[in-house]
């Protein structure tokens, strides 16, 4: 399973990557910005190796996770890519906004590897690691 982790903060990318590795996922790519992520997703699709899951932070400068989600959903070739939103905000209005934009699921920081696995399985019931 190919996973793209998008976060402007190196620390959070390291935490997520470490947790994914502990869970047995090995094909993990990182992007430090929403714009970079869109390009990486398009390239992956055109090369015949699309990402199976995007895990993206919400609160990023330049392009937020929500804007990234909207950009993915409005681009036909990548619109169906599963999207797990990582957020430090657990407020209902933010979550509703993400759901309306088509997010597959969301996870609130801080989280444990078990919680991350649980969220991934809700999106992809039988993930192939």
């Amino acid at each position: 399973m190919r996973i793209l982790v998008v976060d402007d903060m190196v620390t959070m990318r390291k935490i997520i990557k470490t947790q994914l590795t502990k869970l047995g996922y090995t094909d993990i790519t990182e992007a430090d910005d929403g714009t970079t992520a869109v390009e990486a997703i398009k390239i992956a699709v055109s090369s015949g190796q699309p990402y199976d899951l995007i895990i993206s932070d919400w609160n990023m400068p330049n392009m937020s996770g929500l804007d990234l989600l909207k950009a993915i959903k409005s681009t036909a070739e990548i619109a169906n890519t599963p999207f797990l939103m990582v957020t430090a905000e657990a407020e209902q209005k933010s979550i509703i906004e993400a759901i309306k934009s088509g997010v597959s699921n969301y996870i609130v920081k801080p989280f444990t590897p078990d919680t991350l696995q649980e969220k991934i399985k809700k999106i992809i019931p039988n993930p192939v690691k």
């Binding site: 905000e89 609130v108 920081k109 801080p110």
Partner: peptide
């Protein structure tokens, strides 16, 4: 990142 997480949860 710690600041971000703490603030988000407190918010």
């Amino acid at each position: 990142e710690i600041t971000n997480i703490v603030f988000g949860n407190a918010k």
